[in-house]
Computed example of a mutant assay.
Amino acid sequence: MCGRFTQIKSRDDYLDFLLEEAESGIPYDPEPIGRYNVAPGTKVLLLNNRDEAFHLDSVVWSYAPSWWDKSPLINAKVETAATSRMFKPLWNHGRAIVFADGWYEWKKEGDKKQPYYIYRKDRKPLYFAAIGKQPFDVGDEAEGFLIVTAAADQGLVDIHDRKPLVFSPTAAREWMGPETTEAQASELAHDAAVPADEFTWHPVSRAVGNVKNQSPELIRKTDTTSL
């Protein structure tokens, strides 16, 4: 995953697919989020389950604990996150979900890189697996969250060798569940991801490369020969 995605719909649209109204104590808000170019280092709505309730917090997409002397990280590989010294505490106690509609990847074509927008064929919301430093509503902003990535498979590998780990609504709920053990979370990560054949993609304008651009035009299919 190269590090850009969209969060376009209203938070109610994402929650409607995920939670029953009676169990969601999150205030009603039908206003579209309208972010067509979500970039690392910005605050992103993050759904998590703590203190026996669901919470939707605005959390920085990056992770750099105080002892880390390199650039902030934005992704964690599913193959190693559950066991690595750095990510294991987050995997065990900081599992969350990021809402999305699709994500961008860049593919080298000739001497240039062409961006593609990837999304579900049925246009349903995406639920990215994430891990971070709990509690998400307080603490050091530098210790935000990371999106969990997995190896791309089937046609998706033609665009990029990594992809965000996308869950179905049922798997997303289990992933966040306080009662879900570390081992069960690992099983979900390896067995419950939405398969590649449920996704499609198309080329988009290179304007997505500029984080200042937030227009709906960014996700519109474009003719690569005209770029």
Rank of each mutant, 00 (worst) to 15 (best):
H93R: 15
W67I: 02
I26G: 08
G209D: 11
G155T: 01
L227A: 04
G25N: 11
Q214P: 12
N75A: 04
H202W: 14
P216D: 05
T80F: 03
S71G: 03
H55R: 15
I118S: 06
G34S: 11
F199E: 01
G34A: 13
N49R: 15
E21K: 15
D137Y: 09
S58L: 13
T83N: 09
R4S: 02
T42L: 06
T222Q: 15
D111M: 11
D161I: 02
V194F: 06
D158H: 12
T180R: 13
A189V: 05
N37M: 07
S62L: 02
Y28V: 07
V208L: 11
L156F: 01
K43M: 07
L188C: 10
A82H: 12
S62I: 00
P32T: 06
K108W: 01
G155H: 15
D122I: 05
V138M: 07
H202E: 06
E187A: 14
A193E: 14
I147S: 04
T180P: 01
G3M: 02
I131D: 07
D137L: 09
D101V: 08
I131G: 09
W67M: 08
Q114S: 04
W103M: 11
K163V: 13
E198C: 13
V211K: 15
Y28E: 04
R173I: 09
V44D: 00
L15T: 00
I131H: 06
G94V: 00
E31V: 15
R85W: 08
R11K: 09
L73Y: 01
R123S: 10
L18Y: 04
V148T: 07
L15M: 13
K212E: 11
M86L: 15
D137Q: 07
S215L: 10
S10T: 03
L218T: 06
A150V: 06
E20L: 12
D191I: 00
Q7P: 01
N75F: 10
Y116R: 04
A192S: 15
Q214R: 14
Y119C: 02
L56Y: 00
I74T: 10
S226C: 08
R220A: 15
F99Y: 15
R120D: 02
E79Y: 10
Q7K: 02
A130H: 10
C2L: 12
V208E: 06
A151K: 13
W175H: 05
R11Y: 08
F87Y: 13
F136H: 07
E143P: 10
G102M: 12
S66P: 00
M1Y: 00
V208K: 11
S84W: 13
I97Y: 14
R162C: 03
G177H: 15
P27R: 12
L47N: 02
I159C: 06
G144T: 00
K70L: 13
R50Q: 14
I159P: 00
Q214W: 12
S186K: 15
K124S: 15
L19F: 01
N210P: 01
Q114Y: 05
T181N: 08
R206P: 01
T83S: 14
W67T: 05
T42M: 09
K212Q: 15
K9H: 11
V138A: 05
Y36L: 03
Q214C: 05
E143R: 10
V78Y: 03
G94A: 03
E109L: 14
H202T: 08
T149W: 11
K221W: 02
F136T: 04
T149A: 04
K107C: 08
S62D: 04
W106P: 03
K107N: 08
T80E: 12
D140I: 02
A82L: 08
S226N: 05
D13I: 02
R95I: 08
Q114V: 05
